[in-house]
């Protein structure tokens, strides 16, 4: 703050601060306050808005607690998002380690470019590519059939398809934080551990992962949040049995016409995600500022 004033002087510094404040208020605070407001009010016909029935209550939130199907989907979304984060981590960690510690500059450049280029395309189109790949009569089944690995085509759409699509969609959000944190690890630490007789597993468990903890936590938090709030992958790659909570929220808003209940559902999802994230960080002993970096 003082730095800002020192660098830009009083007038300009105040202007910048005011702009940031306006931006925060308009883009972050206002929508959330509106959402909370909606969530706590009943869904009334226009004539009754502001009338005797328009009072704050927890009815919308309690509705979710008492509605078995929605509750199950909600809980499933939470643990399935955690699973997406875990799988993405398992895919990214070895790759990040290799990139950061073993790859030559050229190899790293090629791999990072190959991973980044698909992300120049819109998320919907990328997911659509998986939709085509995983189709019942699609290329993946054709390849597996011709290799004799499966005898008849597999229905990939559903939980497996959603997991694959999301893991792919969020790879970079996991890869970069982990890559950055492993890159700052002095190679001689790994060599010292090996020289002292440590197995590969122990080197990672005791030296690399503790060093990269903040990066790993950041990646997992990003991926978890993105997965829990994801709409495209479950909508395209899911099956009726693998509904995501965001789809239910969508339905309340655009099909059920009940914005209040939709807002309540969205609020619960937001709060629970935040809780999961904070608890995870607490367990991993990583502070929020480290993640923000």
């Amino acid at each position: 703050m003082a730095e800002l004033y020192r660098r830009f002087g009083g007038g300009l510094g105040t202007l910048f601060l005011a702009l940031v404040a306006v931006w925060l208020a308009g883009m972050v605070l206002a929508p959330n306050v509106m959402m909370i407001d909606y969530a706590l009010r009943p869904n009334l016909p226009p004539s009754q808005i502001g009338g005797a029935n328009d009072v704050y209550s927890l009815d919308n939130i309690l509705y979710l607690a008492n509605e078995g199907v929605h509750r199950a989907i909600f809980l499933k979304t939470i643990w399935a998002s955690a699973l997406v984060a875990l799988v993405t981590f398992l895919v990214c960690y070895p790759l990040a380690f290799w990139l950061a510690q073993h790859a030559t500059t050229n190899q790293a450049a090629i791999v990072l470019l190959a991973l980044t280029i698909p992300f120049w395309i819109n998320e919907v189109l990328r997911t659509l590519a998986w939709y085509i790949l995983l189709a019942f009569r699609g290329p993946l089944n054709a390849v597996l059939l011709s290799l004799g690995i499966i005898d008849e085509p597999v229905r990939w759409y559903g939980d497996g398809g959603v997991l694959a699509g999301m893991t792919y969609a969020y790879i970079l959000f996991m890869l970069f934080p982990i890559y950055n944190s492993i890159e700052s690890l002095d190679k001689s630490q790994i060599e010292a551990a090996r020289d002292l007789g440590a197995s590969t597993w122990r080197i990672h468990w005791r030296v690399v992962i503790p060093h990269a903890k903040a990066g790993i936590a950041t990646g997992c938090v990003f991926t978890f949040m993105l997965a829990a709030g994801s709409y495209v992958a479950p909508a395209l790659l899911g099956a009726p049995g693998s509904r995501w909570f965001t789809e239910i929220i969508y339905n309340w808003f655009f099909e059920g016409g009940d914005w209040n209940r939709g807002a309540a559902y969205a609020l619960v999802l937001l709060v629970l995600c935040l809780a999961v994230v904070l608890v995870t960080l607490k367990l991993a002993r990583v502070s929020l500022t480290e993640v923000a970096k």
């Binding site: 002095d186 001689s188 630490q189 060599e191 010292a192 090996r194 020289d195 002292l196 007789g197 440590a198 197995s199």
Partner: peptide, 14 residues
């Protein structure tokens, strides 16, 4: 290195 009867002290100590 983990099987040799040697131990190394690195320039950076590590």
């Amino acid at each position: 290195p983990n099987q040799r009867p040697t131990a190394m002290i690195f320039q950076s100590l590590a």
